[in-house]
Protein backbone atom coordinates (compact mmCIF):
# COMPACT_ATOMS: atom_id res chain seq x y z
CA UNK A 1 0.00 0.00 0.00
CA UNK A 2 1.08 3.59 -0.56
CA UNK A 3 3.33 4.92 2.19
CA UNK A 4 1.33 8.13 2.36
CA UNK A 5 -1.90 6.20 2.79
CA UNK A 6 -0.44 4.06 5.59
CA UNK A 7 0.74 7.24 7.31
CA UNK A 8 -2.68 8.82 6.96
CA UNK A 9 -4.54 5.78 8.33
CA UNK A 10 -2.20 5.61 11.30
CA UNK A 11 -2.81 9.27 12.16
CA UNK A 12 -6.49 9.15 11.37
CA UNK A 13 -7.00 6.61 14.13
CA UNK A 14 -4.68 8.41 16.52
CA UNK A 15 -6.71 11.60 16.22
CA UNK A 16 -10.01 9.80 16.76
CA UNK A 17 -8.61 8.05 19.81
CA UNK A 18 -7.24 11.33 21.13
CA UNK A 19 -10.58 13.09 20.71
CA UNK A 20 -12.26 10.35 22.67
CA UNK A 21 -9.74 10.45 25.50
CA UNK A 22 -10.14 14.19 25.82
CA UNK A 23 -13.91 13.76 26.02
CA UNK A 24 -13.43 11.08 28.66
CA UNK A 25 -11.26 12.92 31.08
CA UNK A 26 -12.95 16.29 30.70
CA UNK A 27 -16.29 14.63 31.38
CA UNK A 28 -14.91 13.00 34.50
CA UNK A 29 -13.36 16.29 35.57
CA UNK A 30 -16.82 17.79 35.39
CA UNK A 31 -18.31 14.93 37.35
CA UNK A 32 -15.67 15.14 40.06
CA UNK A 33 -15.87 18.88 40.42
CA UNK A 34 -19.41 18.46 41.76
CA UNK A 35 -18.11 16.52 44.77
CA UNK A 36 -15.15 18.81 45.24
CA UNK A 37 -17.11 22.02 44.98
CA UNK A 38 -17.17 22.32 48.80
CA UNK A 39 -13.51 23.28 48.63
CA UNK A 40 -12.74 25.69 45.80
CA UNK A 41 -9.07 24.79 46.02
CA UNK A 42 -9.91 21.15 45.40
CA UNK A 43 -12.07 21.99 42.40
CA UNK A 44 -9.38 24.17 40.85
CA UNK A 45 -6.73 21.52 41.31
CA UNK A 46 -8.87 18.92 39.57
CA UNK A 47 -9.19 21.22 36.55
CA UNK A 48 -5.48 21.81 36.64
CA UNK A 49 -5.00 18.05 36.48
CA UNK A 50 -7.17 17.98 33.37
CA UNK A 51 -5.05 20.61 31.64
CA UNK A 52 -1.85 18.91 32.67
CA UNK A 53 -3.03 15.53 31.41
CA UNK A 54 -3.83 17.08 28.05
CA UNK A 55 -0.23 18.25 27.67
CA UNK A 56 -1.50 21.69 26.65
CA UNK A 57 -0.68 23.74 29.74
CA UNK A 58 1.28 26.26 27.71
CA UNK A 59 -1.47 26.88 25.17
CA UNK A 60 -4.02 27.19 27.96
CA UNK A 61 -2.12 29.79 29.94
CA UNK A 62 -1.37 31.77 26.79
CA UNK A 63 -5.07 32.10 26.14
CA UNK A 64 -6.63 32.21 29.61
CA UNK A 65 -5.50 34.03 32.73
CA UNK A 66 -7.24 31.82 35.28
CA UNK A 67 -8.42 28.24 35.70
CA UNK A 68 -12.16 27.81 35.79
CA UNK A 69 -14.53 25.02 34.82
CA UNK A 70 -16.14 26.93 31.94
CA UNK A 71 -12.85 27.95 30.44
CA UNK A 72 -11.26 24.52 30.69
CA UNK A 73 -14.32 22.85 29.21
CA UNK A 74 -14.39 25.18 26.27
CA UNK A 75 -10.61 25.04 25.78
CA UNK A 76 -10.59 21.24 25.75
CA UNK A 77 -13.69 20.88 23.58
CA UNK A 78 -13.74 23.56 20.93
CA UNK A 79 -10.66 25.75 21.05
CA UNK A 80 -8.75 25.65 17.79
CA UNK A 81 -5.72 27.12 19.53
CA UNK A 82 -5.59 23.87 21.42
CA UNK A 83 -3.85 21.29 19.22
CA UNK A 84 -5.63 18.59 21.20
CA UNK A 85 -9.16 19.93 21.58
CA UNK A 86 -11.93 17.57 20.53
CA UNK A 87 -12.80 19.82 17.60
CA UNK A 88 -9.18 20.10 16.41
CA UNK A 89 -8.64 16.34 16.66
CA UNK A 90 -11.84 15.45 14.83
CA UNK A 91 -11.21 18.05 12.20
CA UNK A 92 -7.75 16.57 11.54
CA UNK A 93 -9.09 13.03 11.63
CA UNK A 94 -11.68 14.07 9.08
CA UNK A 95 -9.12 15.68 6.78
CA UNK A 96 -7.07 12.50 6.97
CA UNK A 97 -10.13 10.36 6.31
CA UNK A 98 -11.02 12.56 3.35
CA UNK A 99 -7.65 11.85 1.79
CA UNK A 100 -8.09 8.08 2.17
CA UNK A 101 -11.83 7.91 1.53
CA UNK A 102 -11.28 5.37 -1.19
CA UNK A 103 -9.34 3.09 1.18
CA UNK A 104 -11.63 3.04 4.21
CA UNK A 105 -15.22 1.85 4.04
CA UNK A 106 -17.67 4.61 3.09
CA UNK A 107 -19.55 3.99 6.35
CA UNK A 108 -16.41 4.99 8.23
CA UNK A 109 -16.13 8.24 6.33
CA UNK A 110 -19.78 9.08 6.84
CA UNK A 111 -19.62 8.32 10.55
CA UNK A 112 -16.56 10.50 11.01
CA UNK A 113 -18.01 13.29 8.90
CA UNK A 114 -21.17 13.25 10.99
CA UNK A 115 -19.13 13.20 14.21
CA UNK A 116 -17.22 16.29 13.11
CA UNK A 117 -20.38 18.11 12.00
CA UNK A 118 -22.01 17.26 15.34
CA UNK A 119 -19.10 18.71 17.34
CA UNK A 120 -18.94 21.73 15.08
CA UNK A 121 -22.65 22.35 15.61
CA UNK A 122 -22.27 21.86 19.36
CA UNK A 123 -19.51 24.47 19.39
CA UNK A 124 -21.95 27.02 18.03
CA UNK A 125 -24.90 26.02 20.15
CA UNK A 126 -23.42 26.55 23.58
CA UNK A 127 -23.74 22.82 24.23
CA UNK A 128 -21.29 22.94 27.14
CA UNK A 129 -23.60 25.18 29.14
CA UNK A 130 -26.85 23.45 28.24
CA UNK A 131 -25.96 19.75 28.22
CA UNK A 132 -22.29 19.04 28.89
CA UNK A 133 -22.58 15.36 29.82
CA UNK A 134 -24.84 14.64 26.88
CA UNK A 135 -22.29 16.28 24.60
CA UNK A 136 -19.34 14.24 25.87
CA UNK A 137 -21.43 11.12 25.66
CA UNK A 138 -22.25 11.87 22.03
CA UNK A 139 -18.55 12.27 21.29
CA UNK A 140 -17.74 8.94 22.92
CA UNK A 141 -20.58 7.17 21.10
CA UNK A 142 -19.44 8.67 17.81
CA UNK A 143 -15.85 7.48 18.25
CA UNK A 144 -17.04 4.05 19.43
CA UNK A 145 -19.17 3.82 16.34
CA UNK A 146 -16.23 4.77 14.18
CA UNK A 147 -13.95 2.16 15.72
CA UNK A 148 -16.70 -0.43 15.48
CA UNK A 149 -17.07 0.31 11.78
CA UNK A 150 -13.31 0.06 11.40
CA UNK A 151 -13.44 -3.33 13.06
CA UNK A 152 -16.41 -4.69 11.13
CA UNK A 153 -16.67 -2.99 7.74
CA UNK A 154 -13.05 -2.76 6.64
CA UNK A 155 -11.01 -5.78 5.62
CA UNK A 156 -8.35 -6.58 8.20
CA UNK A 157 -5.63 -5.85 5.70
CA UNK A 158 -2.39 -3.92 5.92
CA UNK A 159 -4.14 -0.56 6.11
CA UNK A 160 -6.42 -1.77 8.85
CA UNK A 161 -3.41 -2.85 10.90
CA UNK A 162 -1.69 0.51 10.47
CA UNK A 163 -4.86 2.18 11.72
CA UNK A 164 -5.07 -0.13 14.71
CA UNK A 165 -1.39 0.33 15.51
CA UNK A 166 -2.00 4.09 15.52
CA UNK A 167 -5.01 3.68 17.78
CA UNK A 168 -3.04 1.58 20.28
CA UNK A 169 0.02 3.85 20.34
CA UNK A 170 -2.26 6.81 21.02
CA UNK A 171 -4.27 5.03 23.69
CA UNK A 172 -1.15 3.89 25.54
CA UNK A 173 0.25 7.41 25.35
CA UNK A 174 -3.00 8.99 26.59
CA UNK A 175 -3.29 6.46 29.39
CA UNK A 176 0.17 7.34 30.68
CA UNK A 177 -0.68 11.05 30.58
CA UNK A 178 -4.00 10.75 32.35
CA UNK A 179 -2.46 8.56 35.05
CA UNK A 180 0.46 10.91 35.50
CA UNK A 181 -1.77 13.98 35.65
CA UNK A 182 -4.01 12.48 38.29
CA UNK A 183 -1.28 11.07 40.48
CA UNK A 184 0.77 14.23 40.39
CA UNK A 185 -2.14 16.20 41.87
CA UNK A 186 -2.83 13.48 44.44
CA UNK A 187 0.74 13.06 45.52
CA UNK A 188 1.33 16.78 45.73
CA UNK A 189 -0.76 16.76 48.88
CA UNK A 190 1.01 14.37 51.26
CA UNK A 191 -1.71 14.71 53.89
CA UNK A 192 -4.09 13.03 51.50
CA UNK A 193 -1.69 10.49 50.13
CA UNK A 194 -2.79 6.93 50.62
CA UNK A 195 -5.78 7.96 52.69
CA UNK A 196 -9.44 7.51 51.92
CA UNK A 197 -9.58 11.10 50.76
CA UNK A 198 -8.06 9.90 47.52
CA UNK A 199 -11.05 7.77 46.75
CA UNK A 200 -13.17 10.17 44.71
CA UNK A 201 -10.23 11.16 42.60
CA UNK A 202 -9.21 7.56 41.93
CA UNK A 203 -12.79 6.65 41.11
CA UNK A 204 -12.79 9.54 38.68
CA UNK A 205 -9.58 8.32 37.10
CA UNK A 206 -10.99 4.81 36.67
CA UNK A 207 -14.20 6.17 35.21
CA UNK A 208 -12.37 8.32 32.74
CA UNK A 209 -10.81 5.15 31.37
CA UNK A 210 -14.11 3.20 31.50
CA UNK A 211 -12.23 1.03 34.00
CA UNK A 212 -14.24 1.52 37.18
CA UNK A 213 -16.53 -1.49 36.95
CA UNK A 214 -13.87 -3.88 35.73
CA UNK A 215 -11.51 -2.71 38.45
CA UNK A 216 -14.16 -3.29 41.14
CA UNK A 217 -14.75 -6.81 39.86
CA UNK A 218 -11.08 -7.61 40.15
CA UNK A 219 -9.90 -5.77 43.28
CA UNK A 220 -13.04 -4.33 44.93
CA UNK A 221 -11.19 -2.00 47.32
CA UNK A 222 -9.82 1.21 45.84
CA UNK A 223 -6.12 1.72 46.47
CA UNK A 224 -3.63 3.98 44.75
CA UNK A 225 -1.23 1.11 44.13
CA UNK A 226 -3.88 -1.26 42.75
CA UNK A 227 -5.40 1.33 40.46
CA UNK A 228 -1.98 1.98 39.01
CA UNK A 229 -1.38 -1.72 38.54
CA UNK A 230 -4.70 -2.12 36.78
CA UNK A 231 -4.29 0.78 34.36
CA UNK A 232 -0.66 0.09 33.50
CA UNK A 233 -0.09 -3.62 33.67
CA UNK A 234 -3.39 -5.51 33.55
CA UNK A 235 -3.38 -8.05 30.74
CA UNK A 236 -7.16 -8.32 30.36
CA UNK A 237 -8.40 -4.76 30.54
CA UNK A 238 -8.38 -3.39 26.96
CA UNK A 239 -7.32 0.15 27.82
CA UNK A 240 -4.30 -0.73 30.00
CA UNK A 241 -0.91 0.19 28.58
CA UNK A 242 0.05 -3.46 28.57
CA UNK A 243 -2.99 -4.44 26.50
CA UNK A 244 -2.40 -1.59 24.05
CA UNK A 245 1.23 -2.54 23.48
CA UNK A 246 0.29 -6.17 23.00
CA UNK A 247 -2.27 -5.36 20.32
CA UNK A 248 0.00 -2.86 18.64
CA UNK A 249 2.72 -5.49 18.46
CA UNK A 250 0.33 -7.99 16.91
CA UNK A 251 -0.63 -5.50 14.21
CA UNK A 252 2.98 -4.66 13.40
CA UNK A 253 3.77 -8.36 13.16
CA UNK A 254 0.83 -8.83 10.79
CA UNK A 255 2.21 -6.01 8.64
CA UNK A 256 5.78 -7.33 8.56
CA UNK A 257 4.64 -10.95 8.39
CA UNK A 258 6.88 -12.05 11.25
CA UNK A 259 6.13 -14.55 13.98
CA UNK A 260 5.78 -13.63 17.64
CA UNK A 261 9.02 -13.85 19.55
CA UNK A 262 11.20 -13.02 16.56
CA UNK A 263 12.94 -9.70 16.34
CA UNK A 264 13.61 -9.78 12.60
CA UNK A 265 12.48 -6.20 12.09
CA UNK A 266 13.56 -3.10 13.97
CA UNK A 267 9.95 -2.11 14.70
CA UNK A 268 9.13 -5.49 16.18
CA UNK A 269 12.34 -5.46 18.15
CA UNK A 270 11.68 -2.13 19.85
CA UNK A 271 7.99 -2.69 20.31
CA UNK A 272 8.48 -6.26 21.58
CA UNK A 273 11.03 -5.13 24.11
CA UNK A 274 8.70 -2.43 25.46
CA UNK A 275 5.66 -4.72 25.50
CA UNK A 276 7.41 -7.51 27.35
CA UNK A 277 8.61 -5.08 30.00
CA UNK A 278 4.97 -4.29 30.77
CA UNK A 279 3.94 -7.94 30.51
CA UNK A 280 6.50 -9.11 33.05
CA UNK A 281 6.77 -6.07 35.28
CA UNK A 282 6.40 -6.58 39.00
CA UNK A 283 4.19 -3.69 40.14
CA UNK A 284 5.53 -3.87 43.67
CA UNK A 285 8.83 -2.64 42.24
CA UNK A 286 7.24 0.64 41.24
CA UNK A 287 7.10 3.05 44.20
CA UNK A 288 4.60 5.86 43.67
CA UNK A 289 7.38 8.37 44.15
CA UNK A 290 9.10 7.03 41.00
CA UNK A 291 5.93 7.07 38.94
CA UNK A 292 6.61 10.23 36.98
CA UNK A 293 10.11 9.18 35.91
CA UNK A 294 8.79 5.76 34.95
CA UNK A 295 6.03 7.18 32.76
CA UNK A 296 8.27 9.77 31.14
CA UNK A 297 10.73 7.05 30.19
CA UNK A 298 7.87 4.94 28.85
CA UNK A 299 6.76 7.79 26.61
CA UNK A 300 10.29 8.32 25.32
CA UNK A 301 10.47 4.70 24.30
CA UNK A 302 7.00 4.82 22.79
CA UNK A 303 8.05 7.87 20.78
CA UNK A 304 11.00 5.87 19.52
CA UNK A 305 8.68 3.09 18.38
CA UNK A 306 6.48 5.68 16.68
CA UNK A 307 9.50 7.17 14.91
CA UNK A 308 10.64 3.72 13.78
CA UNK A 309 7.25 3.00 12.25
CA UNK A 310 7.29 6.32 10.45
CA UNK A 311 10.78 6.00 8.96
CA UNK A 312 10.44 2.32 8.15
CA UNK A 313 7.00 2.42 6.46
CA UNK A 314 5.90 5.98 5.78
CA UNK A 315 9.05 7.18 4.09
CA UNK A 316 9.56 9.91 6.72
CA UNK A 317 13.25 10.87 6.50
CA UNK A 318 15.65 11.72 9.29
CA UNK A 319 15.99 15.28 8.00
CA UNK A 320 12.24 15.83 7.92
CA UNK A 321 10.29 17.26 10.77
CA UNK A 322 6.68 16.37 11.02
CA UNK A 323 4.73 15.70 7.90
CA UNK A 324 1.63 17.78 7.32
CA UNK A 325 -0.52 15.09 8.80
CA UNK A 326 1.71 13.98 11.62
CA UNK A 327 2.42 15.36 14.99
CA UNK A 328 5.15 14.15 17.30
CA UNK A 329 4.36 12.88 20.73
CA UNK A 330 4.89 15.71 23.11
Amino acid sequence: MLSRVADTLYWLMRYVERAENVARFVDVGLYLSVDLSGSPAGATSSWEAVIKASGEEKAYHENYSSVSADQVLSFMSFDRHNENSILTCLSRARENARSVREIIASEMWEALNRAYLMVHRASQENALKLRPHAFFKEVKLATHLFRGLHEDTMSHNEGWHFARAGCMVERADQCSRIVEGHYSVLLANPAHALSDAMDPSLVGLLKSMSAYEMYRKKYRRISAQRVLEFLLFDSEFPRSIHACLYRCERSMRAITGSRAGRADDITNQRLGRLASRFAYFDPSELPLSDLEAFLVQFRDELAEVDWTIRTRFFGTRQDEGDGAQSQVLQ
Binding site: M1, L2, S3, R4, A6, F162, F313, F314
Partner: peptide, 10 residues
Protein backbone atom coordinates in the same frame (compact mmCIF):
# COMPACT_ATOMS: atom_id res chain seq x y z
CA UNK B 1 13.03 4.96 -11.40
CA UNK B 2 15.06 3.18 -14.07
CA UNK B 3 12.96 4.59 -16.91
CA UNK B 4 9.64 3.49 -15.43
CA UNK B 5 6.99 5.20 -13.37
CA UNK B 6 6.64 3.73 -9.88
CA UNK B 7 4.77 4.49 -6.67
CA UNK B 8 6.19 4.41 -3.17
CA UNK B 9 4.52 1.70 -1.07
CA UNK B 10 5.07 0.28 2.40
Amino acid sequence: RGGYLTMRTT
